[in-house]
């Protein structure tokens, strides 16, 4: 595994998210073979790679929708999901309530939106603040309205997901994540279920979030977005980081053959 030197980190600054040697197998297939990276607050990391390379699994391990088999994840120095404790450093998983408390520091935006179909857009966004953070219904709805306005959906707050276009639904999902005031947001191919003409409205919202200083990890096949918005780019294949660096560098001068082949394939589509 070779890598271009990562973006230099100012001395003394601790990363928001530190991932070390993350491993995951399904059955006896090793899907993640030791993934490590740091992410500074306010930065956008974009993960690219061929289908099946493990990008989704990385995101799902970060907020423990999937339990990793090995390695550590630290958010502001706090180990996620449990800790190595006692002699022999045995792994102790956190109780569910603590896990849930950690999980809400990660927003998650799903490929297929996963909005709650029985709730309106406003309720979809307000339910977390109300039922998880314990805000009153009025406060929660006020907060939800702010976030929906932020993603330009102020006029659609009372609609159910089924009454919204894909692009609108995905923006509701982003607002739902934002309303929990997460430390960072994980995006798993947020535009790949959308009709092509709706892709830009979601990417624009994400670019705006990045500009405002939100920390994000984005899995995407939108290479122009990666080029424009990423502070750091990671190319994965077969459960490993093959190459990483500034997007400009990776795109214009990929060092690894696997990267070259992948980029040639996706950029010439």
């Amino acid at each position: 595994m070779t890598s271009i030197a990562p973006t230099p980190v100012p001395r003394g600054l601790k990363p928001l998210l530190a991932v070390r040697d993350l491993r995951k197998s399904f059955g006896n297939r090793e899907i993640l073979k030791g993934i490590s990276f740091d992410l500074m607050a306010g930065q956008t990391l974009v993960l690219i790679g061929p289908s099946g390379s493990g990008k989704t699994t990385v995101l799902r391990c970060l907020n423990h929708l999937e339990t990793p088999d090995g390695g550590t994840i630290e958010l502001l120095g706090e180990p996620i999901g449990g800790a190595y404790m006692g002699e022999g450093a045995k792994w102790r998983a956190l109780p569910e309530a603590d896990m849930a408390r950690q999980r809400r520091k990660f927003g998650f935006v799903f490929q297929r939106f996963n909005l709650f179909p029985h709730l309106t857009a406003l309720e979809n966004v307000a339910i977390g603040p109300a039922k998880v953070l314990g805000l009153s219904r009025k406060e929660a709805e006020a907060r939800a309205a702010v976030q929906l306005t932020r993603v330009s959906l102020a006029d659609h707050m009372d609609k159910r997901p089924s009454q919204l276009s894909g692009g609108q639904q995905q923006r509701v999902a982003i607002a739902r994540a934002l309303a929990m005031e997460p430390r960072l947001i994980l995006f798993d191919e947020p535009t790949s279920a959308l009709d092509p003409e709706l892709v830009h409205e979601v990417l624009d919202v994400m670019a705006e979030l990045a500009r405002e200083g939100m920390t994000m990890v984005v899995v995407t096949h939108e290479m122009s977005f990666a080029r424009r918005v990423a502070d750091h780019l990671i190319f994965m294949a077969d459960g490993e980081i093959v190459e990483e660096g500034l997007p400009e560098a990776v795109f214009s001068a990929p060092r690894e053959e696997k990267t070259q082949r992948f980029l040639a394939h996706v950029l010439n589509r």
């Binding site: 999980r103 809400r104 799903f110 709650f116 179909p117 339910i127 039922k131 994540a177 929990m180």
Partner: peptide, 27 residues
């Protein structure tokens, strides 16, 4: 109920009981 519903609820910090009451049962 589709697995994505539970995952979305987890991702906003809901615990099992709340997921059942607010997300799965109403659907």
């Amino acid at each position: 109920v589709e697995k994505g519903q539970t995952e979305a609820a987890k991702s906003i910090g809901m615990t099992h009981g709340k997921i059942l009451v607010y997300v799965l049962l109403p659907q």
